[in-house]
């Protein structure tokens, strides 16, 4: 057993788990935060996406011990001060889901993606890698969100929701 301490959605957590336990299992099985989903346990679907210090990762591929001292945000923690996150609202308005099982991962991933884009990182479809102020076109969003599968095929709604939020003034 190893002791892990981390902040999850702003709350300090401390627990003893075997060293092989994944961050996903810590969230779902130990902390009861079942909003983060398990779709494959293999890093292939993105349903388990959470934010670590603002960066998106697949929690199923992360050993919990490696995240000691880090700040984890799950879908349960993305809303600020009682108001839903703009992406949560946009997903409902633009019908960015059907069954809802990939949705937590899509929203967390989109938050991380927008931050990456804001920090100027390029993607495989960016024309000039060195460009600054890359426009967040539909193609850019689709490329950057391709780690999050939606078998219900709600992709159009998801992209629209992200675009709406990216374009709306902060």
């Amino acid at each position: 057993m190893v002791e892990i301490r981390m902040r999850v959605n702003g709350v300090s957590e401390s627990l003893d788990v075997p060293p092989w336990v994944s961050l996903l299992d810590v969230l779902r099985e130990h902390l009861g935060l079942t909003g983060t989903k398990r779709g494959c346990d293999q890093g292939a679907c993105g349903a388990c996406t959470v934010l670590v210090d603002g960066e998106r990762i697949n929690a199923c591929l992360a050993l919990a011990v490696q995240y000691t001292g880090r700040d984890i945000t799950t879908i349960e923690g993305v809303a600020g001060g009682g108001d839903p996150h703009p992406l949560q609202t946009a997903f409902i308005r633009d019908d960015g889901f059907q069954c809802g099982y990939c949705t937590s991962g899509q929203i967390c991933s989109a938050i991380g993606m927008l931050a990456e884009h804001g920090a100027g990182s390029a993607s495989a479809v960016t024309e000039h890698v060195a460009a600054t102020g890359i426009a967040l076109s539909g193609a850019e969003i689709r490329e950057r969100m391709s780690g999050n599968l939606c078998r219900c095929g709600a992709y159009n709604g998801i992209v629209r929701a992200i675009q709406d939020v990216a374009e709306s003034p902060r």
């Binding site: 779902r28 009861g32 935060l33 079942t34 909003g35 983060t36 989903k37 398990r38 799950t74 879908i75 349960e76 809303a79 839903p84 949560q88 997903f91 409902i92 308005r93 019908d95 889901f97 809802g100 099982y101 949705t103 937590s104 929203i107």
Partner: peptide
């Protein structure tokens, strides 16, 4: 009309079969 289960599904509150304590 927006889905009535939208808030549950976008906040992680919707419980699927493996999520009942």
């Amino acid at each position: 009309i927006d889905r009535v289960d939208g808030p549950a599904k976008t906040t992680g509150a919707a419980r699927y079969s493996a999520e009942y304590p």
